[in-house]
Amino acid sequence: MSPDDVMIVVIAGLLSTSCALLGGFLVLRRQALLPDAVSHAVLPGIVLIFLLTGERASAATVLGATAFGVACVAGFEWLRRSGIVGSDAALALVFPALFSLGILGITRFASGAHIDLDSAIYGDLTFAPLRTMSLAGLDVPTSLVVTGCATVATILFVVLLWRPLHASTFDPEFAELSGLRARAAGRMLLVVVAGLAVVAFDSVGAILVVTFFIVPAATARLLTQRLGTMLVVAVAAGWVSSLAGERLATAIDSSIPGTIGLASAGLFVLALLLGRRGLAWRALRSRRPES
């Protein structure tokens, strides 16, 4: 593997670490589709900041995009709580509208802006090692710094809010009553998810955002029975798919996010077949006569 290959795996692995940690909670909270929605809803924020400042990858971009991501989550929560629309329909209503605004913004005002839709969707992980910044005199890929910071921040978040997050996911009424400020913790989780989705969106594109948030966590859920181990396994699954996906992409000369997505889907299928109560075991057992 060339240094660039290693760098790509490390960037993807770091990102999958933070996504899997938060994704574990989202999967258990039945909010697994929020990152998908958020990663689409941030587009108008990116366009708006570009129109205002002329930059497409600055701190302002991340803030602006996060604001739209949070707006998407808030709109979704309001619709859901009002009870008028089911939570699935609420999601399906909010994010396409915001994504549409983003596309119209690009075609109308920012067509020359290099915010091209393809890179937003597919991401440009391939070129991530080439875009560098200077850090303590060294040329370091910008994505590495950004995803590294995001990972540290996510780990801190999950460690500090462990109790309210897991208690409110398991038993929301108890968590609310026990004074853990569970609702506040739940909202903070969504804000952090929005922020991370933006960072991930910028580094790896919309496809991998969805994959990294959901698939490793869903895989780990099939294999484990404790939240702690589930999150560790999810992170491991993220790294394995990053490595396997990158190797596969090099081997067949294909899109890296696409192959990483396929690799993590492959791990999921393995877990589905071979995990505890896996389909393969069940099939074997049903063949054997009951003793």
Binding site: V27, L33, I214, V215, G258, L262, A265
Partner: peptide, 16 residues
């Protein structure tokens, strides 16, 4: 929601 998410990302990755 998890089932939808897994299928969505898998089919998107395959398509790409």
């Amino acid at each position: 929601d998890a089932a939808i998410g897994v299928v969505l990302s898998t089919s998107l990755a395959l398509g790409i």
